[in-house]
Simulated scan of single mutants.
Amino acid sequence: MTKKYIGTKEILAWGQEKDGKPGYAVKYPDGYISWSPKDVFEAAYRKCEGTGQHLTFGDAIHFLGQGKKVARAGWDGKGMFLFLVPGSTFKVNRPPLLGIYPEGTDINYRPHIDLKGIDGSISTWNPTCNDVLAEDWLIVE
């Protein structure tokens, strides 16, 4: 019985005609190369480097998980971006946690997303509905 699937993979591609039809040559991570018609390719893939990126929030989360930095094209601040802070465990040794827990208490610091602001400050970040629905996310260097 057939079932539906959805997946995310990074590929290399370049414009290439086949039998006079526009399309793309596609190179997969294992080295396999195939060809895809332009409309089929553009419905399945989004550019994720350089100019012209238009990633979804889901794409942005995927790339954050790979250690990449992401931003919205529409953000006004140059140099603003998000990054994933991995979780860690540490022992309490200074305020403000020292005023809440005894010194030496193990703290489970959960993973979260931080924002680097235009002034260089770092703060925790939570998406708005606009962020989640936007398709102007991009990977930044």
Rank of each mutant, 00 (worst) to 15 (best):
T2K: 05
T2M: 08
K3R: 13
K4A: 15
Y5H: 12
Y5V: 13
I6Q: 11
I6W: 08
I6M: 12
G7R: 08
T8Y: 05
K9W: 04
K9Y: 02
E10R: 05
E10W: 02
I11Y: 06
L12P: 08
A13K: 02
W14C: 11
G15E: 15
E17Q: 12
K18A: 00
K18S: 06
D19I: 06
D19A: 14
K21T: 15
P22N: 11
G23P: 03
Y24W: 13
Y24K: 02
V26P: 01
K27W: 00
Y28F: 10
P29F: 03
D30F: 00
I33E: 14
I33D: 10
S34N: 13
S36Q: 08
S36E: 03
S36C: 11
S36F: 01
P37H: 09
D39P: 07
V40N: 10
F41V: 01
E42K: 01
E42Y: 00
E42M: 04
Y45C: 05
R46I: 04
K47C: 02
K47G: 00
E49T: 13
G50V: 03
T51R: 03
T51E: 15
G52I: 00
Q53T: 05
Q53S: 10
L55M: 10
T56A: 07
T56E: 05
G58F: 00
G58T: 07
G58K: 12
D59A: 05
A60F: 00
L64Q: 11
G65L: 10
G65F: 09
G65S: 11
K68V: 02
A73G: 12
G74F: 02
G74Q: 13
G74P: 04
W75Y: 09
D76Y: 05
G77S: 14
G77H: 08
K78C: 01
K78G: 06
G79S: 06
G79R: 03
G79P: 02
M80N: 13
M80S: 12
M80P: 00
L82T: 07
F83T: 03
F83L: 14
F83H: 14
V85A: 04
V85T: 02
G87W: 00
G87R: 05
T89G: 11
F90C: 15
P96W: 05
P96R: 04
G99V: 01
E103C: 06
G104W: 10
T105M: 12
T105Y: 13
D106Q: 05
I107A: 09
N108F: 02
Y109H: 15
R110Y: 00
R110T: 09
R110I: 06
H112W: 12
H112K: 12
I113Q: 06
D114R: 00
K116T: 12
K116R: 14
K116W: 08
I118M: 11
G120T: 04
G120N: 07
S121N: 09
I122R: 15
I122C: 10
S123C: 08
T124Q: 14
T124C: 10
N126F: 04
P127W: 03
T128Q: 08
C129E: 12
C129I: 14
N130I: 09
N130P: 09
D131A: 05
D131T: 02
V132F: 00
L133K: 14
A134I: 02
L138N: 02
L138R: 01
I139K: 01
V140E: 03
V140G: 04
E141Q: 13
E141H: 07
